[in-house]
């Protein structure tokens, strides 16, 4: 484990309609959460090519969060199902290359779940902090 001042670098790729709106709602409600995550907005989690996530880990990300709508709530009907399937497979790939699969997380946060977004943030930061720096971090630089 690195020094105690170490802060994880976490990428969140989130959908415009549910999770991004939920994150905005957490902001409007001034719900405080740890500042270690940087969000990239896509229209739907279905857009997320697993290679984006592999690229993030290759670049040294300590964790990646994918967050979309609840099942049945997808703005595009079923993009989140496809994303979930891909993330599920990708987790086994991560394990196979020796990376903890907990570094990749998929969650479902709706546009009205600002409080849940904050909880997810806390949880993801806690999980990744406990795992420590990504073994790929050094070689990325």
């Amino acid at each position: 484990m690195a020094d105690e001042n170490w802060k994880p670098k976490i990428v969140a790729i989130i959908c415009n309609w549910c999770s991004y709106a939920g994150a905005d709602l957490a902001g409007s409600a001034r719900t405080q959460y740890p500042p270690d995550i940087r969000a990239i907005r896509v229209m739907c989690t279905g857009r997320i090519d697993p290679l984006f996530i592999m690229k993030a880990f290759q670049d040294g990300a300590d964790g990646v969060l994918v967050s979309g709508c609840h099942f049945g709530d997808c703005h595009y009907l079923e993009g989140n199902y496809k994303a979930a399937k891909r993330m599920f497979l990708l987790k086994s790939v991560l394990k196979n290359i020796g990376l903890e699969d907990k570094r990749l997380r998929m969650t479902f946060v709706s546009a009205s779940e600002g409080a849940k977004w904050a909880t997810v943030m806390e949880d993801v930061v806690k999980t990744v902090t406990e795992l420590g720096p990504s073994p790929l971090g050094e070689s990325a630089r």
Partner: peptide, 16 residues
């Protein structure tokens, strides 16, 4: 507007 080069550039910009 959400092309692969654009998204990869965003990921790279953050991490690298």
């Amino acid at each position: 507007h959400f092309t692969t080069p654009q998204i990869v550039a965003q990921i790279d910009a953050f991490l690298l």
